[in-house]
Nucleic acid binder design. Structure first.
Lengths: 258, 258
DNA sequence: TAGAATGGCTACTGGTGAGTATGGTCCAGA
DNA sequence: TCTGGACCATACTCACCAGTAGCCATTCTA
């Protein structure tokens, strides 16, 4: 039903997640002529994402979303067919970033662990984005079986992608042998959970969090014997903004128990 | 506002999580005389937990819960002051298992990593319990500021407990040096996420999942030298980037909790 | 300038569900 | 047998909110 209308902008959905910080309501400007239906539609979806993020899906009414955009509810319905679709679109906007990460990683010439790390970095950034909440916390029960099915399929695609990278890494020797299924669950869980605690204010960006998590997941809790030499090939840029607790000089390293 | 009601049973919450598999509605038996208010109250809470787990908080009406118990809504209100309190009690029932795990671990004579593992095992079991959903997915926005505050405090207590174990482990050499905060986030995230995918039917118990996760977290993704094949790829940079806050003796501030 | 799109608003409907008023029943103790 | 209290049901109220009907305003097009 939608999108049978003269597109002035790009015909492709212009990566809602990518475009950033268009926080102003375009209706104001619209008074001065800026009628781009697609832009407005995106603004609706982004406003919904923010509201869901702040108050939860069920505690957000379409009146709230409309008010945030300084319009009325029927206007929102002019761009979107119902509330459920709104949630769905937010979800898709969020997950699209992750899917793109996989496509990108696929073209990378590097050991699987490096490709996995690249994916995880994008993953964390997506979860920390304004669509993170919707992507992670949208409940099956709030969606029609149809849309719920779509979402499950996309989630499964991501899951399988991680497992595949793990298997490849085990195979090419860049990843310690492990159970790909459970490892993927652990990785995805840790990353998804970011949506529960992350608030932009706190100063860490999504990829900084990702780097911290990657460190955790790479070295593991069990003490490692000293590492002989450094291999500069996989040194990350490491923005000098020192993360809290990058590394502590561990003294009195008792050789691993057990 | 809540809990201004004649308590006939024990005043303390009697570990709802512990008692198990009392799936039958006690009202039937009540026909034959079994008026134990506390038991019925627990049944209400457990029924709520199951319903929330299956349909989500907002998609569950008190009529649903009442129907599951074969009573009517006012009966539910006889035992519980409102829907929010129900959610809160479910949460508490879930988290109580984890708090108990910490108490237990504290008395253990073992390196911190072992104590941490013991906690994580209980943690996973709790998240996989019927109260897992409530514990993990209860949204702040669905609760009054008062109850939300309580919940945050309890969550923070768990978080701090994990961090402390990590610090102790780093100090006693049983845990590889890491950033306790981010590591705790990663651990908790992976475990909490269990509530999103776990279904009892799938054959794994909570502690089996925990063991699988522990393996993942212990060894890490990076190949370990002990492993047959030589690690051909990148080692982690391990730049000795000095943090501003240098090192703080983990022991100096003794665990002076409570 | 007329008429068609297009975009938006006011003012509604209908359903749902939290919470309650009220009253009946059963039981224990006097 | 009476009385009070514990327990539970019927049958409501009330508020909120998703979604819609229908009308008005502005802009585009011929």
């Amino acid at each position: 039903m939608p999108s049978n209308r003269p597109k002035t902008g790009s015909p492709q959905a212009p990566s809602l997640a990518a475009r950033d910080a268009f926080t102003e309501s375009p209706w104001r400007a619209s008074r001065e002529r800026l009628r781009d239906r697609e832009i407005k539609r995106e603004a609706v979806i982004r406003a919904a994402a923010r509201a869901f993020n702040r108050k939860g899906y069920h505690n957000t009414s379409l009146d709230d979303i409309a008010a945030a955009l300084e319009v009325t509810k029927p206007t929102v319905y002019y761009y979107v067919s119902n509330k459920e679709q709104l949630l769905f679109e937010c979800f898709v906007a969020g997950i699209e970033g992750i899917r793109a990460a996989f496509r990108e990683a696929r073209s990378l010439e590097a050991p699987a662990r490096e490709r996995l790390k690249a994916v995880l970095r994008h993953y964390a950034a997506s979860v920390a984005s304004e669509f993170g909440w919707c992507m992670v916390r949208a409940e099956d029960q709030d969606l029609s079986p149809d849309m719920s099915g779509h979402i499950k399929a996309m989630k499964s695609e991501i899951d399988q992608g991680i497992r595949r990278l793990l298997r490849e890494g085990i195979h090419d020797g860049s990843i310690h042998p492990c159970d790909p299924k459970m490892t993927a669950f652990a990785l995805a869980g840790a990353l998804n959970w970011i949506a529960h605690w992350y608030r932009e204010s706190q100063g860490m960006t999504g990829s900084q969090i990702a780097d911290a998590f990657i460190t955790v997941f790479e070295s593991g809790l069990q003490p490692r014997p000293e590492i002989p030499h450094e291999d500069p090939t996989c040194r990350k840029p490491k923005s000098s903004s020192s993360r809290p607790g990058a590394r502590r000089s561990a003294r009195s390293r008792a050789p691993s128990r057990r």
